[in-house]
Amino acid sequence: MIRSASPKYEFNLKNSTKFSGILPFLQFLERMKIQQTFRGFDCLKKDNAKFPLSKIFVYLIAGWMADCSRMFHFQSLQNDPLIRAFLGGKCPHYTLLSKDLLRLEKIEDAAIEFKERVMDIIEPWLDSDLILDFDSSVETVYGNQEGAKIGVNPHKPGRKSYHPLLVFEGKSHLCLNGVLRPGNVHSADNGIEFAEETYRLLSTQYLIRYARFDKGFGGEKFYSYWEQQKINYAGKLKWTSRLKKYVENDNSPWIRYVDDELIVIEGKTVYYQATSFKSYTIRRFRREFIYSAGVLTSHSRRVSLNICKTYAHKWAFRKMIQSVRMID
């Protein structure tokens, strides 16, 4: 308890960080050799560049986890001792990040090349049989970011947003592909082209058992694509009054799939044709897990991170560190 009405203060706390909770993630990036994966892009800068593109990519990934959603937010990481130690002693100035991203924009097929490198990291963790889960999300922006448009936004109606299209592997939950789109597009827009790109990114050794998607992707063209590829699919349908009446009047039996004390799930198979076929959040994770005070200390050749004693996620933190160390 501070009894003095005017406590003394000094700005002399050295080697302190507010991102102690990001340590397991940084160790994960290091263990997965993320920087080595993107070495091929280093040729786009001079050989003696202090910050090659591979290091810039790693810095951008770490910054995103630390809630740096815009380039000038990276100023908060500039002198952070934990981030600097991870990058080898110094962080690039935030203005350099924009310059390097613009450098990539001029390279033809840079996005596909980047996705192929990411797939090289993911594939060793996949089973031979895959389930593709298609999804889309609305990401609200609070400015005039490039490509953001006003569209359907259930959380912030009337505000600009992005509408990214994503595909995950159903068993491992790893993200296989993604594309950033303006907020005024429909969930299914360019869905077939996106599925074909994902199919090309995967090695031929993988067999796609089936695809899953929600009602936003419904449509005759999207269904026909999977049928032509001879890939099974499961998709949600909008529960319209017409579909409800059709199911109620159908005489086929209901099948009980789950029956226990808490949950009962029943279903039935019907043939139905619509009248027409037309075309833990990351924010909470950062707030509760990433943001935590800590101090880097050095003794002989050993560096330690002393985390705030009141940190609420000690068990999960240690568990993540142990899991990272098990990665080959």
Rank of each mutant, 00 (worst) to 15 (best):
S6G: 06
N12D: 15
K14Q: 11
N15E: 13
T17D: 06
T17C: 04
F25R: 01
F25Y: 14
F25D: 09
L29S: 01
E30C: 01
M32T: 03
I34C: 02
R39S: 14
R39L: 15
R39V: 11
R39G: 02
R39W: 10
R39Y: 13
G40D: 13
G40R: 04
K55V: 01
K55T: 07
K55D: 05
F57K: 01
L60P: 01
I61V: 01
A62L: 01
W64V: 11
C68E: 03
M71G: 01
H73E: 07
Q75W: 08
Q75E: 14
S76C: 09
R84A: 12
A85W: 03
F86Y: 07
L87F: 04
K90C: 10
P92E: 11
Y94M: 00
T95N: 09
L97H: 02
L97W: 05
L101F: 09
L104S: 04
L104A: 01
I107Y: 04
E116G: 03
D120V: 03
P124H: 06
S128Q: 14
D135V: 11
S136Y: 02
V138G: 04
T140I: 13
E146S: 12
E146F: 00
I150M: 11
N153P: 13
G158P: 00
Y162S: 13
P164V: 13
L174K: 02
C175M: 13
C175A: 08
L176Q: 02
R181K: 15
N184T: 12
N184S: 15
V185R: 06
H186A: 15
A188F: 10
R200W: 13
L201P: 00
F213N: 01
G216A: 07
G216Y: 02
F222E: 10
S224C: 13
I231V: 15
A234K: 11
G235L: 05
W239S: 08
T240Y: 00
S241Y: 00
L243Y: 00
K245H: 07
K245T: 09
D250E: 12
P253K: 15
I263K: 12
V264I: 15
I265C: 06
G267Y: 06
K268C: 04
T269E: 15
V270T: 08
S279W: 14
I282E: 09
I282H: 12
R287L: 12
I290T: 08
L296S: 07
H299C: 10
S300H: 07
R301A: 05
R302L: 14
L305M: 05
I307K: 04
Y311G: 09
Y311Q: 05
W315Y: 10
R318E: 15
K319T: 14
I321D: 11
I321V: 13
Q322F: 10
M326T: 13
I327L: 07
D328H: 05
